[in-house]
């Protein structure tokens, strides 16, 4: 009989970062999260994947979430490391929300044509991580959850 040894997934670290939703914070968010994820000793490629996925989610908060607001809102990042070498990153805002998530996640779909956006942000997040989940409420905000297991 084969007995499966269950490895319990334990949380080993967590950070919460709040940033003003301005474009100069995009590089800061990437740097913070990649320094945090480096705690799991990922490969340089894996780290670059996380950096890019985080950049997409954070940029969306800057570009879309608070569009038309007089003062920029905030970006809330919550990142966790687990003992099974998984990193999870949640990027949330309290902005305008997304009406149709499925449509928003379609490659090349963008609501910001004048801004020269390619509409590939969610596709990049999906391709560079293992799992992307989006929840959103019109005028309530958006939450993007991503996870990636390092080798």
């Amino acid at each position: 009989m084969i007995t499966e040894k269950k490895v319990k997934k334990e949380k080993i670290n967590e950070v919460k970062i709040t940033l003003l939703a301005v474009s100069r914070n995009e590089s800061l968010a990437r740097a913070y999260v990649s320094a945090f994820a480096a705690g799991l000793d990922p490969t340089l490629d894996e780290l670059a994947d996380i950096r890019c996925a985080v950049s997409e989610a954070v940029t969306n908060c800057v570009v879309h979430a608070y569009k038309g607001w007089e003062n920029p809102g905030k970006i809330y990042i919550n990142a966790r490391l687990y003992s099974d070498r998984t990193v999870t990153v949640e990027v949330s805002d309290r902005g305008c929300g997304i009406e149709n998530i499925e449509m928003a996640m379609t490659p090349l779909f963008t609501t910001d044509k004048e801004g020269e956006r390619s509409g590939m942000g969610f596709s990049v997040m999906k391709s560079f991580t293992d799992c992307v989940r989006v929840t959103s409420k019109p005028s309530g905000g958006t939450r993007v959850f991503m996870s990636k297991k390092f080798s």
């Binding site: 997409e56 940029t59 020269e116 956006r117 390619s118 596709s123």
Partner: peptide, 13 residues
């Protein structure tokens, strides 16, 4: 040193 979909937008534009 880094590019995301915004860089792609720059190229497409």
């Amino acid at each position: 040193k880094f590019m995301d979909s915004s860089g792609l937008g720059l190229i497409m534009g």
